[in-house]
Design a protein around this nucleic acid. Sequence first.
DNA 1: GCCAACGTTGGC
DNA 2: GCCAACGTTGGC
Length: 139
Amino acid sequence: MAYWLFKSEPSTWGWADQVAKGETGEEWDGVRNYQARNFMREMRLGDLGFFYHSQKEKAVVGIVEVCAEAHPDSTTDDDRWDCVDIKAVKPVKTPVTLDMIKAEPGLDDMILVKNSRLSVQPVSEEEWQIICRMAGVSA
DNA sequence: GCCAACGTTGGC
DNA sequence: GCCAACGTTGGC
């Protein structure tokens, strides 16, 4: 199983919106970046991910699960763009902020730190464990 | 609100 | 195919 991180501006699509979708989940649409799209194509059913709020909050706020593998993005006719569906699994006990991530040895190499603009990114098993521990959730 | 970093677009 | 210009993102 692989781990991922999904980034969104809360004002556009936040954790609360994701939770409201329940078990059905929702398309992670609107991604117009090849790197991000390629990662989504690699995702498999049941993969887990962090839900990260960008901008003001800058923190991991929840855990999500891939509930549909890559398919055409319904928000565009352009067949270059695919997306997956994700559903909320559970919120974190303690939001893990970007500052905390930067301060944590072992998380220095996270894409989140190195390439802050990539909105969908892989997370290593180690990084997953560390952040889960910081967030107060079981991995 | 600003600005740096990055990716994409389009002209050549 | 290269590269300058532009738009967007996201941290500060």
